[in-house]
Design a protein around this nucleic acid. Structure first.
Lengths: 238, 238
DNA sequence: GAGTGGTCTAGACCACACC
DNA sequence: GTGTGGTCTAGACCACTCC
């Protein structure tokens, strides 16, 4: 079944078995490409073909210039549940963390302007944050927030969950969400934070969020490592 | 950003501009790898690196052994809308088609048994279908259906939409859906039908469906070409 | 049958991570 | 500084598509 014929598929299968048997544990580093290619009696190019194939299936992942690792179990992410990232991850028995990279006020342009339905160049808050699970960076998020509804937002602690800040200081909460999921190659910004090679596959989740009164309050762009997540939702059919 | 330094990124950018400028039209075939590599003064390996990068972004796609093509616009797919595939695609001004590959009764095993919550080896209907948009195969679907609720299902015309058959002959309709989205490498089965190389990136949408009485009636596995779809939903936060 | 993409070899240099 | 992964060269053969 698609593993027998080509050399890179044979190697792929061999590595796969090592992983499934537990000889290679989640999070552990694989031997160097040169060592592996020698061990399998092939060239680095061919070996990398095998690894890329495993990578596409989310069984191994790369850290830029650091090597190949066995992928931990995926985190389940439900965009329709009003649980924040920390709650969601903790409930799955994993250890979440959020690191603020940058927060500022910028003019809305392009996609942001369109999604937030604002006049051109309206200032919006931009948050850039990096989120990890069990110490591994899995998600780079950019939030764009309409300041009309959240004056002085940047004065609060934004390494927490945004929804908590909304709730506590502005009495607003997410009530409706619209999201779109794109399989993409990660851009330079996301790649560098996630420590992946520019252009590696990832998942872009683009959300627009409404509060309890139906007001469009913010949008965000979530760049996920392709192997780190499974997106899950349970909804009524309309 | 991120296109200047390496040769394959420079080539990537050049091809990208050709596509965006309209010099290469959606659905059209690129020149052969040998011709392109010569034109860019590089080797096939490097050129393929550029193409793979564009492929990850969904800008070009491959057909196994047939060559590289410019990707048409993505189809928007909303798993929470009770519109069938044909309706959904037609509304977007595109031309849908469904081809039945195989229909039979098989014992439920593994994931199917688990999702449908059936005793081991309970017979279930299996439908294997291939769906296209504007003549391009974009989706390979396997449906697994609990025969208890749909006696003699195979006697009906199943090249139509399943939901229509459910509605007309069994007075059941989808009312609740639970879905999970995995970025995966496409398996042999899906790859061969979609005419892609085994292991190319794709999106697996796994659904479990309930009728208006809350009865779990079927599940399906939808293997999408990675560049052909954007998954979209609009839901209330719970 | 000609040409294509899929696969593979046997090297190489460089920038960066890690020691 | 050493070794690693990232990138690149210059070829090759095979299986398949298309004519």
């Amino acid at each position: 079944m698609g593993q027998g014929k080509n050399q890179y598929q044979i190697i792929r299968t061999a590595l796969n078995e090592q992983i499934e048997s537990g000889a290679l544990k989640p999070g552990s580093k694989l031997p160097s490409e040169r060592l592996l290619s020698e061990k399998f009696g092939t060239t680095r190019i061919t070996l990398r073909e095998s690894l890329s194939s495993l990578e596409a299936d989310g069984l191994v992942y790369r850290e830029d210039r650091r090597g190949w690792f066995v992928s931990p179990e995926r985190v389940t992410y439900d965009p329709t549940v009003n649980a924040n990232f920390h709650t969601m991850v903790t409930r799955q028995g994993r250890l979440p963390d959020t690191r603020m990279i940058h927060a500022d006020l910028v003019p809305a342009t392009g996609r942001v302007q369109k999604l937030l339905q604002l006049p051109a160049l309206t200032p919006v808050y931009r948050l850039q944050r990096l989120r990890s699970v069990d110490g591994r960076n899995v998600l780079y998020v950019e939030n764009y927030i309409n300041p009309a509804y959240f004056p002085d937002l940047l004065k609060h602690d934004l390494s927490r969950s945004l929804s908590d800040v909304y709730q506590e200081h502005y009495e607003r909460q997410y009530a409706r969400v619209s999201f779109r999921i794109y399989p993409v190659g990660l851009n330079t910004e996301a790649s560098s934070h996630l420590k992946v090679t520019t252009g590696s596959s990832g998942l872009l989740v683009e959300r627009t969020n409404y509060d309890q009164s139906g007001v469009l309050i913010d949008c965000d762009f979530e760049y996920w490592r392709q192997d780190a997540v499974v997106i899950s939702a349970d909804t009524r059919v309309t």
